[in-house]
Amino acid sequence: MLDAIPRVRISVTVNGRQYVRELEARTLLVQFLREELNLTGTHIGCDTSYCGACTVMLNGQTVKSCTVFAFQADGGQVLTVEGLAKDGELHPVQQAFSDCHGFQCGYCTPGFLLSSLHLLQEHPTPTEWDIRKGIAGNTCRCTGYQNIFKAIRTVAGGENIGH
């Protein structure tokens, strides 16, 4: 056995703020966010890299934070749902989900917001197929997909989506 649980020191910028922490090496990114930084907007759904509830952006790309070690984000930039709204104003993607009722229970919503933002950054005027591919890694068990589609389309027709 190992003499002691090995730890690593990491420095990660989350939603624009830098955090330096010493953690067990086996800490997952989602645990770092939720339990070390108390950023509980990122949810754990299936915990098996399937459902996408834990989706965050790491260096501008969406990842499933239940399947990334925290140390893989060392030196990097993470964006979570808490970083979307600015000065009390919802991000346009959040506003569109709200306007179109793009959620039912809301559990999957933080992950959908990040995947939607990423797909809109890659495809500012997405086709239906771009949207389908873009949110293929996120599952909504309330089956609210139609309104999620509507929300993404609404933003696509709108102004600069920021970030």
């Binding site: 190992l2 090995p6 090496a25 086996r26 800490t27 645990q31 140390f71």
Partner: peptide, 11 residues
């Protein structure tokens, strides 16, 4: 914190 993987040393 609940830990899933067995402990390992990072290199």
């Amino acid at each position: 914190m609940r830990m899933y993987p067995a402990a390992f040393a990072y290199h």
